[in-house]
Nucleic acid binder design. Sequence first.
DNA 1: GCCTAGGTCCCGTAC
DNA 2: GTACGGGGCCTAGGC
Lengths: 240, 240
Amino acid sequence: MGVTTRSRPDVHTAAELIDESLDAGHVCSIVGRCTVAYDGRTQSTLPAGERLVVCKPDGTLLVHHAAGHKPVNWQPPGGTHDITLIDGELHLQSRRDAPDERVEIRFTDLRQVSAYALEEDHDRDVTGSEDDLRQRILEQPTLVEEGFQPRMTERETSAGPVDIYGVDANGTPVIVECKRRRVGPDAVGQLARYVAAAEREYTTKTVRGILIAPSITDRAERELTQHELKWVALDPIHSV
Amino acid sequence: MGVTTRSRPDVHTAAELIDESLDAGHVCSIVGRCTVAYDGRTQSTLPAGERLVVCKPDGTLLVHHAAGHKPVNWQPPGGTHDITLIDGELHLQSRRDAPDERVEIRFTDLRQVSAYALEEDHDRDVTGSEDDLRQRILEQPTLVEEGFQPRMTERETSAGPVDIYGVDANGTPVIVECKRRRVGPDAVGQLARYVAAAEREYTTKTVRGILIAPSITDRAERELTQHELKWVALDPIHSV
DNA sequence: GCCTAGGTCCCGTAC
DNA sequence: GTACGGGGCCTAGGC
């Protein structure tokens, strides 16, 4: 319904509110001064500073500071939060397995603690993804080139699954790799891997590779040439 | 110092608090029911739902729902926030250039608006990064193989910069690619690109490629074999 | 559980 | 500004 908020709470009040809220499946926001230590896939420490900490009931932990999109420290969903009081300080520890990792936050000053239920949410509906680009090609294969015929999507090679497998006007196998945005050398490497694997595995001697993307960097274009691959300019959003 | 909070504010109170706080360089948290529309690199819409919205003075916008690490909608830093009242509704629009994109949030219900100053923050200190792995190798090159001598880091090839360039016991050029975690086929493709470029560009006929990583997938190992590359198991964290 | 690749990836750094 | 690769990337979809 509403939001439960404690301004400058003492540690006991804060601990109780956070504990009960997380148990109830609510989200908690904590504004205060804290240190953060992470141990898991790497190790990191963060000196005392003022931050916004968000705990979600699914185990997600976010530590945000004044700037930037990314949390300065975090825990992905799947773990558990634990609140403890040690030497009169509020400690929040978030642990998860696989990988085994933990974040420990020690608050030296609590400016505000809030808790609120957020109902389950819908997914967002996106247009302009790589999948939309693939769909465009399947509906209008000549956008790739005259005579191109798609035969399969996600066809497996020993190097991985190819976006679109098909044949050209001569019946030569073609591997199409789609990218929704400007591509660099990595995308060319990906396509080259698929083509090389297909040439080893398909009965045909030659396999062509075509990269679909709105634009391409100079270096990527040079790499394309080296591998005798082709680039076709195409946008995920249909431009009329 | 503290946190300014309005519980169930009317739209005018909310608009004023958000406007003034962002102007003052403070962070705002808004809990409420809203729809979100994004237009930029892609387009997306999100139906009405209960969310936590965070606005930072650097232009960052985060829309979080009850679950998950990633915001359900967002704006990276660099843009500007704008608050407007339209038909008695609070609208928050975040715009930025390069790329040109905007997020528009329409609140149908405001449960809480908070604002607070967060002082500038330090960066976090991390150990266990790829750079640590590279450092380990430079200090103890025999970890790569007996007789390996590093000569240069970030040496440029037409395919991109290589992590470590050196020579083996026979004086043959060696390109070393370091990964801090288990690698898949993409890392092999990256190394293969560098080796191929080096073979074209260096005066020597043969260039060897060695992948350094704690572990490797089956498919990546097969790709390695195909390209006559080598993998050496090594962890970024020094194990005693 | 692991593997594979996409992402409005974000981000730093070098050019 | 662009470009390139790292990231505790996260996340979805297969197997």
